[in-house]
């Protein structure tokens, strides 16, 4: 199949110090799909995105990207590395880590410059992404002094400047105000409309309806416990509850106690 982007087969991965993070994950991702990976803290979502971005490599099983095995030594070659990295962009969970240049402008320019894009074109891209993400006023600031929401937008801008085919988002909306969340989701949906593949790791169930057609639920055994359409997963309350994604709420209203289930952050009635 030509539109196959990722094929993940029985992948196992442990962090140094024997912290198992993935124990047998299978997944198939096609071009233009919207995928969400959900699961409680520490179930291996970020680890999976790192694998898909070719930053770490499975100890067992394999990942195929764009029809080629993703192997550590094949990315040693500069040409091969650039070919792959130009097509895949990862927005890290921690924007502080992603932004390492002395100014926002240079952070945005970093990716394209590595790929040998001319300075003129780089400057054009900086203007363009600044427009899209509304960060014109931040261009000459120092990244680590920005607010969390501002950092997130700059981090997304630094990936957008590369213009990859596949976007990997790690918790893109955690800790942001509602307007910024809206802005970022609009950006993701728009990118997908233009044919980009987006893969998001999150535990914010409210945004899933918009940013995913297919949802994979990661369980505490560090495997996929369920994969399916967004609707079928979101409607499976028992599944979500047993995976710490919704919780039973117990609280007092006018002196009476009542108990009900609800999604994280859902409005009470």
């Amino acid at each position: 199949m030509s539109d196959l982007i990722y094929e993940v087969k029985d992948v196992h991965f442990s962090w140094p110090g024997k912290f198992p993070a993935l124990c047998g994950v299978d997944m198939t991702i096609r071009s233009g799909e919207k995928i969400a990976v959900i699961g409680a803290n520490g179930t291996g979502k970020s680890t999976l995105l790192h694998l898909l971005d070719g930053l770490i490599f499975p100890h067992h099983g394999h990942v195929t990207a764009f029809g080629e095995r993703l192997l550590e030594h094949s990315l040693f070659d500069e040409q091969a590395a650039h070919r792959f990295r130009r097509r895949v962009g990862l927005v890290f969970q921690n924007a502080d880590i992603q932004l390492f240049c002395p100014s926002v402008r240079e952070d945005i320019a970093f990716g394209p410059l590595q790929f040998g894009v001319t300075e003129e074109e780089v400057n054009r891209r900086i203007r363009e992404v600044a427009q899209v993400l509304d960060i014109h006023h931040l261009l000459d600031r120092v990244p680590h002094q920005l607010s969390i929401g501002e950092k997130k937008r700059v981090a997304i801008a630094s990936v957008l400047a590369i213009d990859p085919d596949v976007y990997l988002f790690d918790e893109p909306t955690a800790g942001l105000d509602p307007l910024t969340v809206r802005h970022i989701i609009d950006f993701m949906v728009n990118a997908n409309r233009q044919g980009k593949t987006i893969i998001t790791a999150t535990h914010d169930l409210h945004i899933i309806g918009e940013i995913a057609d297919t949802v994979y639920v990661f369980g505490r055994n560090k495997r996929i416990v369920r994969g399916g359409s967004a609707e079928s997963v979101l409607n499976d309350r028992a599944l979500l509850e047993s995976n710490n994604l919704i919780h039973i709420h117990r609280h007092h209203h006018d002196g009476k106690e009542h108990v009900h289930q609800h999604l994280p952050l859902e409005q009470h009635d």
């Binding site: 590395a81 502080d96 040998g116």
Partner: peptide
């Protein structure tokens, strides 16, 4: 952090010699 920053640099195409504006 410095290990992770290195990964972040790799992710955006760093292969040894960074190029700057």
């Amino acid at each position: 952090i410095s290990e992770e920053v290195y990964l972040a640099m790799l992710s955006r195409g760093y292969t040894g010699e960074p190029r700057h504006l």
